[in-house]
Design a protein around this nucleic acid. Structure first.
Length: 888
DNA sequence: GCGTTCACG
DNA sequence: ACGTACGTGAACGCC
């Protein structure tokens, strides 16, 4: 008789973790949850004699991160790292047992179990679902049984029709009704207030279903009736949430799930590594490894590598091997690559690994090696070569020829994939494991280089992993249709970014200091006034102390609270301003204090004395959408909206006398992208006719001619347009416009009634995300949304808004990146001296010699507008002056 | 190290 | 019943 055991992996490992006492192996890894899981598994196998087994997991690391987030919202503990670290071990163990496991981006273990059990049921097979989650009881049928864990985890209690009837007096399909009424705090299912298990069961015994209860509330009375009437929708939705979807495409055949029993050669090494001696005995496996054991048997099976620690004497070997180098790794220290030291370089060449220390690299004897590094005709594969390039540059060693950067590939393949270190990538691709940097170097203040031998080994392992990753990632990129994005856009861009960063942008130190003096005078005045009104001195920078003054001492009304106390953010202070003069002073203080600490003092610290410039570091592998980010300093958030802050821009000047700063920005690029991808005729019309998009939107939504749109209507329309781009919600819009949620909802409804193409796009992109588990941009940049089918309302809603926003923000990011690549080509073709310095999401900043100003004023917007052809025109506006302030 | 606030697109 | 507009980085207070 064939029998399938379907295990809810997440549910069981959680329970095992909390049920078992702490347990670690000699490597210091926690193993208690894996131990509990394995015990349960072996017992099930013995008792049930299954022919097939499948363990289902929630997909991806994100799930656990967001479970932490959800728990946090629910006021519970985060997933402890002692548990997180056990997931990879469990998966390795299952593989070694020959047990199939299944996780699929965008789906939860519930979905997998629901769908697999349904199919098996239809095929007439016996199924036992093992879980700690009572919701699963809804899956019970003639052929499907559900085993719930008891107190511990190794014991389970099987439920069929009879047991559910006996325990609850319900049929399996009524389990969702039960949840609909009583809710479930751990899953964030609300249910109906005041109704717990007892009341819910009574109601269901009387009426049979949620729908029937709600239809016949006239037969009830009192508070319960009131709650049911008022929360009818909650009840319906809760039932929906508790319903397991059983329709996902199952990408496992029956044969894939076959279980043939354990074999010692596969299972024993993993059990030994975990140091599960009692289990080894129970299975009659040897507790010590066989012939393979080499005294390191208990450690992870890191690969033995053939390593040369290079010296002046043996450097010739490496020089000969250079022509066959598959990968190199350039290790740097510190976060800021402009200040980093080069720790050492390793090379992988035909299964030999060479380590070169920085000291050796700087010696005359290594000149051929330095030449090789700087030869742009030699293609190089590595990890974070952009960072390496900068570090080498400041030590006088040119680097060129970056052709395949494993960190960028990993980012494109999963921009929100969490830890993208080489150690994590080795795990992910099933390569020989390598130690984490933290374990080799320590972190923070404890960072310390190990002995050269150990250092060389660790860095050689990195080079080895890079060499192996390259073909694997190349294949994955190809599979995802991202090869062009990688080779023709991101890799060229990474080289361009390094050039921009080395170039830097000049800052007038004296002017900046002068500005600081002016700010400080104003700050001093404000502080005096505020202390006087408050009647006491306190730390104005402490929201806690400020809150005590405003709300306890002065008794101003509390508008909003944070987790830790009173909120004092600008939103709140603006609402309090009418009550007391002090509030405006505080707002002004905040503004100036921000400018002073972040932009005057912060920027001064970043000016490099040698160049008189600031050299930001653009990060290419951070954002979820494909945008860049900027650090040390962040030059993508220099003030502009308020005049006081905008003055900061005056200190950003050309680095050569007589040159100009030229800035060009895309006009409404995100709404134009939306017009293109949604195909909305009205939106397209607006851009084809060069209309003011917010006025046009107001005119359409309020049904008045454009001439009659007043400033308030335009302001509302602008907020709606922003909201649309962000993945609109009535709540968000209401916050932004300071109106009620209902009014915001009406705005949105009116908008969608006019821009129907946009509504269709929003609906279809969410559907697409639910089907595929990811969304893409025009250039096939991809973002996975594992929570798009979550049963938790907040997680799911967030993913839905992300599904709407990411293709828009991401495509805009694609476009300006394309423009940057084309711009550099255009500059070099025309042999111009102008330099591209900064990118600020929809803006490019250049420094331009006088005699190129006219040409650049035409060329830059032209290149930007032609970067990608859409069904609406792209528009770029250009301007120039003696500094960034004037280039507006 | 986390939370709050605020600067930008 | 729940609480978010999307995407970032830096400074500061506080534990």
């Amino acid at each position: 008789m064939e029998k399938l055991i379907l295990i809810d992996g997440n549910s069981i490992i959680y329970r095992a973790f909390f049920a078992m006492p702490p347990l670690t192996n000699s490597a210091g890894q926690h193993t208690n949850a894996v131990y509990g899981f394995t015990n349960m598994l072996l017992r099930l196998i013995q008792e049930q004699q299954p022919s097939h087994i499948l363990v289902a997991f929630d997909a991806g690391k994100q799930t656990f991160r967001h479970e932490g987030y959800k728990d946090y919202k629910g006021g519970r503990e985060k997933t402890p790292p002692e548990l997180s670290e056990q997931f990879p071990m469990l998966k390795e163990l299952l593989d070694s047992f020959g047990i199939a496991r299944y996780e699929s981006e965008g789906f939860e273990a519930d979905d997998i179990i629901g769908a697999v059990s349904k199919r098996a049921d239809e095929e007439g097979r016996q199924v036992l679902v093992v879980t700690g989650d009572k919701d699963m009881l809804q899956l019970v049928s003639d052929r499907v049984q559900v085993a719930l864990t008891r107190k511990g985890v190794t014991e389970v209690e099987p439920y069929g029709y009879a047991e559910i009837q006996e325990r609850y007096g319900l049929k399996p399909e009524q389990i969702t009704d039960l949840k609909g009424l009583m809710g479930d705090t751990s899953d964030n299912i609300p249910g109906v207030p005041g109704i717990g298990e007892k009341t819910a069961l009574k109601l269901l015994h009387q009426f049979g279903s949620v729908e029937e209860v709600l239809a016949r509330t006239d037969e009830l009375k009192g508070k319960m009736k009131e709650n049911l009437v008022n929360h009818a929708e909650d009840a319906r939705m809760s039932k929906q949430l508790a319903t397991i979807h059983r329709e996902m495409p199952v990408e496992r055949s029956w044969e894939d799930m076959a279980f043939a029993g354990l074999t010692e050669d596969k299972a024993a090494p993993v059990l030994r590594k975990l140091e599960f001696k009692s289990l080894l005995e129970r299975l009659s496996f040897a507790a010590e490894g066989g012939a393979a054991s080499d005294g390191q048997g208990e450690r992870r099976a890191e690969e033995a590598l053939d390593i040369r620690i290079c010296t002046e004497d043996n450097l010739g070997e490496l020089l000969e091997a250079l022509s066959a180098v598959e990968a190199l790794h350039i290790e740097t220290n510190g976060d800021n690559p402009h200040q980093a030291e080069v720790v050492g370089i390793t090379f992988s060449s035909q299964r030999m690994y060479y380590f070169v220390s920085y000291d050796l690299l700087k010696k005359e004897a290594a000149a051929p090696l330095a030449n090789w590094l700087g030869d742009e005709t030699i293609s190089k594969s590595g990890y974070d070569l952009h960072r390496a390039d900068l570090a080498l540059h400041w030590h006088g060693i040119p680097f060129a020829g970056a052709a395949f950067d494993v960190s960028i590939a990993a980012y494109l393949l999963d921009p929100t994939g969490g830890d993208q270190s080489l150690s994590a990538l080795a795990d992910k691709y099933g390569l020989a494991p390598i130690a984490s940097d933290e374990s080799v170097f320590g972190k923070g203040a404890k960072y310390k280089l190990p002995e050269e031998e150990a250092l060389g080994l660790h860095l050689a392992r990195k080079a080895a992993v890079i060499a192996k990753l390259v073909p694997l990632q190349q294949e994955d990129l190809e599979k995802n249709g991202m090869s062009k994005l990688f080779f023709d856009l991101e890799m060229p861009l990474s080289r361009i970014l390094a050039d921009m960063e080395k170039q830097g942008i000049a800052v007038n130190r004296e002017d900046l200091q002068q500005l600081g003096t002016e700010f400080q005078e104003q700050i001093n005045k404000l502080v005096t006034q505020i202390y006087e009104i408050a009647g006491t001195e306190f730390n104005l920078n402490s929201p806690k102390q400020l809150g005590e003054i405003l709300f306890d001492k002065m008794q101003l009304p509390v508008i909003k609270k944070t987790k830790t106390g009173y909120s004092t953010d600008a939103d709140v202070l603006e609402k309090l301003a009418p009550y007391h003069d002090i509030v405006q002073f505080i707002l002004d203080y905040r503004q100036l204090a921000k400018l002073q600490s972040t932009y005057v003092e912060g920027l001064l610290k970043e000016i490099r004395p040698e160049t008189g410039k600031v050299h930001t570091f653009f990060r290419q592998t951070i954002t979820a959408t494909g945008r860049l980010s900027s650090q040390y300093p962040n030059l993508q958030n220099i003030p502009i909206r308020l005049e006081e802050g905008r003055k900061i821009r005056k200190v950003f000047v050309p680095s050569e006398p007589g040159w100009h700063i030229l800035a060009a920005d895309y006009s409404q690029i995100e709404l134009r992208v939306l017009a293109h991808i949604s195909g909305d005729e009205r939106l397209k019309e607006a851009f084809l006719h060069e209309m003011d998009i917010h006025t046009k939107t107001a005119s359409d939504v309020f049904g008045v001619p454009q001439e009659q749109v007043d400033s308030n209507m335009r302001r509302s329309a602008k907020a709606v347009n922003f909201g649309i781009v962000y993945g609109i919600s009535d709540y968000g819009l209401s916050q932004n416009l300071n109106i009620t949620r209902k009014e915001a909802g009406q705005f949105i409804e009116q908008y969608f009634a006019i821009f129907q193409g946009v509504r269709k796009y929003m609906d279809s992109i969410v559907k697409e995300a639910k089907r595929d588990g990811y969304v893409t941009t025009l250039l096939e940049r991809r973002r996975y949304l594992p929570e798009i089918n979550a049963s938790n309302f907040n997680l799911r809603s967030f993913a839905e808004r992300t599904a709407m926003n990411t293709p828009i923000q991401g495509t805009a990011a694609d476009i300006i990146k394309l423009a940057m690549v084309r711009m550099v080509e255009a500059l070099s073709e025309r042999k111009l001296r102008s330099r591209m310095l900064l990118q600020v999401h929809d803006e490019l900043v250049f420094e331009v010699p006088e005699d190129e100003l006219e040409l650049m004023t035409r060329l830059v917007p032209e290149v930007m507008e032609k970067a990608l052809e859409l069904s609406v025109p792209l528009k770029a506006e250009v301007s120039s002056g003696n500094n960034w302030y004037e280039a507006k």
